[in-house]
């Protein structure tokens, strides 16, 4: 079983490394890079919300702070925005501490609403602090690298690091603590698990990698404004949909989800014209109604059903 998984991972990695060699057109490469960015945010979100069950509606705050860290370095100090890759994650973690301190006092839908409000507060602050952030005018930088292949491999490295760290956390003792918090917080507390501490332990890496993705986004896209990087629907909610499509609380779910979402979104955009978001919305509804645990999540269930049948047990899920 382990060998099969390792083999799959190696094949996956080889395909990912080989892709830009096969696909040469800049547009297709652009889509691949977007997939990587979304897969990174999705994987980071999945750690906090999928495994630990603290559904965050405010990940745009981390993404935006990461992106602005890179942008502001260039704007105010004339440094290369690539330094943002170092500063962005740190800043995202720094803001994650107060956010966690506020939001982890709450549970379930209240937690979701508090993160939503905090994300919006960040958007409005960055929009209004015109002297510091340029406000709605946004920040435009001149890219040092123009080759898409370079961005692809840097992004791939970030994604690989995110996947690895998430995998290690989830498959360590911490991972079991996180799942126990998701399944029943009171029971977890009664067993002596310091729930708030472990929730923060999930939040910090989650914020770190989201911030990293944000800083990378700034370097790649070269233009940001608060309504792009702090957007509630296009970032915070989008990441939830990406993970839900791929599979909540699975290692590869967010990556699969990101690939499907971005590619489908682009296909709709090119074929359906102005109705593309409508079709997309209908699709979102259908996915949540019929595939609530995502593609990777439902695969497990399907597998379990077939295995039960083999064992001669009658049972559904």
């Amino acid at each position: 079983m382990l060998n099969k998984n390792t083999l799959m991972t190696i094949v996956f990695a080889l395909v990912a490394v080989a892709l830009p060699v096969i696909i040469k057109a800049p547009y297709q490469q652009h889509i691949l890079i977007l997939v990587i960015i979304w897969a990174t945010i999705g994987t980071a979100w999945n750690l906090l919300s999928g495994y630990a069950g603290q559904v965050s509606f405010g990940h745009a705050a981390f993404f935006g702070v990461g992106a602005y860290s890179a942008g502001l370095l260039t704007l105010h100090y004339g440094l290369s925005p690539w330094w943002g890759l170092a500063l962005g994650p740190v800043m995202a973690m720094l803001i994650a501490l107060p956010i966690g301190a506020i939001a982890f006092r709450l549970r379930g839908p209240y937690f979701a609403l508090a993160t939503l409000a905090l994300g919006e507060i960040f958007r409005l602050m960055f929009l209004n602090m015109t002297g510091f952030t340029n406000g709605a005018k946004g920040i435009l930088i001149m890219p040092a690298i123009t080759s898409k292949i370079a961005y692809y491999y840097i992004g791939l490295g970030i994604l690989a690091a995110t996947l690895l760290v998430t995998y290690l956390i989830v498959h360590s003792k911490i991972g079991y603590y996180l799942v126990s918090i998701r399944e029943d917080q009171d029971a977890a507390t009664s067993l002596g698990i310091p729930t708030t501490f472990y929730k923060n332990l999930a939040l910090l890496p989650s914020a770190l990698f989201t911030g990293l993705a944000g800083a990378f986004y700034m370097n790649y896209v070269t233009f940001i404004d608060p309504d792009i990087v702090f957007n509630l629907t296009d970032i915070s909610i989008m990441v939830i949909l990406v993970v839900m499509l791929g599979g909540v609380a699975t290692t590869w779910g967010p990556t699969i989800g990101a690939a499907l979402y971005i590619i489908m979104g682009e296909l709709f955009r090119t074929t359906l014209g102005s109705a593309n978001v409508l079709v997309f919305g209908v699709l979102v509804c259908l996915i949540i109604m019929f595939l609530p645990n995502g593609i990777a999540g439902e695969l497990d269930i399907i597998k379990r059903i077939t295995q039960r049948k083999k064992a001669g047990l009658s049972g559904g899920v």
């Binding site: 919300s49 999928g50 069950g53 559904v55 379930g108 839908p109 979701a112 998701r182 629907t233 909610i237 939830i240 949909l241 839900m244 909540v248 609380a249 109705a275 978001v277 409508l278 997309f280 919305g281 209908v282 979102v284 509804c285 949540i288 109604m289 609530p292 645990n293 999540g297 899920v317």
Partner: peptide
Amino acid sequence: DSILPENQVLLTVGIMLVLTE
């Protein structure tokens, strides 16, 4: 049956998208 109970909230987001678009 789903892992995250926030499914219904997300469905309302989908409905919002459909209505708006």
